[in-house]
Write a protein that binds this DNA or RNA. Structure first.
Lengths: 357, 357
DNA sequence: TTGTACGCGTTATCAC
DNA sequence: GTGATAACGCGTACAA
């Protein structure tokens, strides 16, 4: 029996990895009741006598007590969790917005459960179910597919919901995103001012993302008033195809105008800008001589050639606004009609839109 | 009284936003017991009669029942949540690793609670507490500061723990990250092969991040064997200061050698590469003539000048390995001694390390 | 194979 | 002010 202690720790001290202390143990340690301890940690300290407060404080500190959020969420549904669905976590724009969301949540004492769908509608459904199973109090959604039915079901159940960047046709929910019309207007104005007369608008397929549709539509609408000629090309990430399209656009002889008019590329988002830059590089085009303007500011845009002109999205603000919307809906989800929040982009002029070099 | 129904929905149908169905309601609907339903959703369907299974399935489907993870986590601690602490969510490297972690978790039926500390040790502590309060089953940590004490306390309580990229001195935990020595060796070999003889190693301050220390140390160790001359410069994000350092390095006359030897910059990570590229651009240096090699592959590296040579980290694999480690520790956290997993980088040679242009 | 009873840690309700 | 007690939704011995 004693031998067990020779050079060895008794088994009983090995196995029982200590549980976290519970509210009951704190209550006992403080000589108080569960209720009082609960009140103490629920921000109702004013309703407790200073002396009791102090006893609880020291007891909790000594035991290193931390309220169990799981148990909290069980009773009143106050999980203090907010869910965020991101279509592509590797997209810097998404990350920047998420950063804003996260900061805003933190300031509100909310935790953020982030799910990345990798643009897979199937995964999106799965993750939606996952997050609700964790009793999230609200959902911020950058949709990958069209989970309209699922989302509608959620709002019907009283789940506050905010759409991010991408709008969905049938879902009644707030939307926070860029003012896409304004963005295209800014872009066209700038390109026209800089002397570019013929434009090629490049975008990814527009079916899945409302901003792409809005931008494309505005592009077509906005040409005439500025005496611009333009065409659009939507394609997915095929570099080869993109390069051919750009080459055709650049080498084609212009029979609609007299002189030779500078031509420019307008890219619908950061991914397209990257692909287009790659293509232009392969084609040996000189930035500026061939104009290039992209929506989404990326940290490398100032480094390529003479710098790439961009329209910066207010990513942080978009994220914060999303949380603000959510918070406004928390008390009574179906209260007000859905609102659309459209934030302003900012032009970052650089060398890629200076035709004179 | 009737008037209330004219063009209006009776109040009672507005307020009571339907709760999610519970296991009891499913049991009632299926004419079964809680237990059976619980078993059904806990993957013990083999132990149920096919007919019961079917009844439960339809009942659950009709009610759109979803087990409440909060309640699940309460009992045995099976929250199915994994926590991940990220020092800088806007760092593409971190995001890439996180992507790997997330995929691996998903395959294991685990949800991921991500917290970003923005490199703030204070916030790190807060978030650590937050995640444990949600009863995460394990923690993957890309440390911002030195939360050694907190982490040690957690492991003592049986919390499985994996360190990501950055090691911590006193914490007994698995580590997954780049093979930093190998990375520097590869870099030095490549630079030497390409004919660069004088190197400037650029890094951010090494206090907070062990990889920075390891890389810097290896740099100094590895010079002699390759007949290279080199010096190192660690500084934080001050562009001005960086530019001066680089300028001094490039313009200084070399009195240790006879001829003029090509000089190159070796950047400790992606952020430094970005800053150095900016500085070189401002200085009007030609990439290649002035060598440039950076650790961390970024999507714009092939676009700048002749392309920037990089050492790509196996980010996805690092993320997956972290989850693997965690899983291995779940059954018995303190089982084996901590292991260090060091993954291999891959050289992406480009024009920035071709001195001949 | 199926059902019963209890416990998980917390909050809400209602007495004192 | 403070405390006892009943939920909350689920897992799990244990009994049937």
């Amino acid at each position: 029996m004693f031998a067990a202690y020779h050079g060895n720790v008794p088994i009983t001290t090995v196995k029982p990895m200590p549980r976290r202390p519970t509210i009951i143990e704190v209550a006992r340690e403080a000589g108080a009741s569960k209720t009082s301890v609960s009140r103490y940690f629920s921000g109702e300290r004013e309703k407790l006598s200073p002396t009791l407060c102090a006893r609880i404080a020291t007891a909790a500190l000594r035991l290193d007590y931390r309220p169990n959020q799981m148990a909290r969420g069980l009773k009143g549904g106050r999980s203090r969790l907010v869910g965020m669905l991101v279509a592509d976590i590797r997209n810097p724009f998404s990350v920047a917005v998420m950063h804003g969301v996260e900061r805003a949540c933190r300031e509100q004492g909310l935790a953020l459960l982030v799910c990345n769908t990798d643009n897979d509608p199937e995964l999106e459904r799965t993750h939606l179910a996952l997050m609700t199973s964790y009793q999230v109090e609200g959902l911020i959604i950058n949709a990958a597919g069209s989970p309209d039915a699922e989302l509608q079901a959620l709002t019907d159940h009283g789940m506050p919901l905010v759409l991010l960047d991408r709008d969905l046709g049938t879902v009644q929910a707030d939307l926070v995103g860029l003012d896409n019309a304004r963005a295209i207007d800014l872009a066209l104005d700038h390109l026209a001012e800089q002397g570019y007369g013929e434009l090629l608008y490049l975008s990814e397929p527009t079916e899945l993302a409302s901003p792409r549709r809005e931008r494309l539509a505005r592009f077509h609408e906005g040409l005439a008033a500025r005496r611009l000629t333009g065409e659009a090309n939507t394609m997915d990430g095929n570099d080869q195809e993109l390069q051919h399209a750009i080459e055709a656009f650049l080498t084609r002889s212009d029979n609609r105008r007299s002189g030779d008019v500078p031509r420019a590329l307008l890219c619908a988002n950061g991914a397209v800008t990257l692909a287009a830059t790659r293509a232009l590089r392969t084609l040996g085009a000189r930035l500026g001589e061939t104009g290039l303007l992209g929506i989404d500011e990326l940290d490398w845009c100032k480094l390529v050639g003479p710098g790439i002109t961009t329209l910066a999205q207010p990513t942080e603000a978009i994220g914060r606004q999303a949380v603000t919307c959510l918070l406004a809906r928390l008390p009574n989800p179906a209260e007000a009609r859905p609102r659309k929040h459209r934030l302003e982009p900012r032009l970052m002029p650089r060398g890629s839109t200076r035709p004179t070099g």
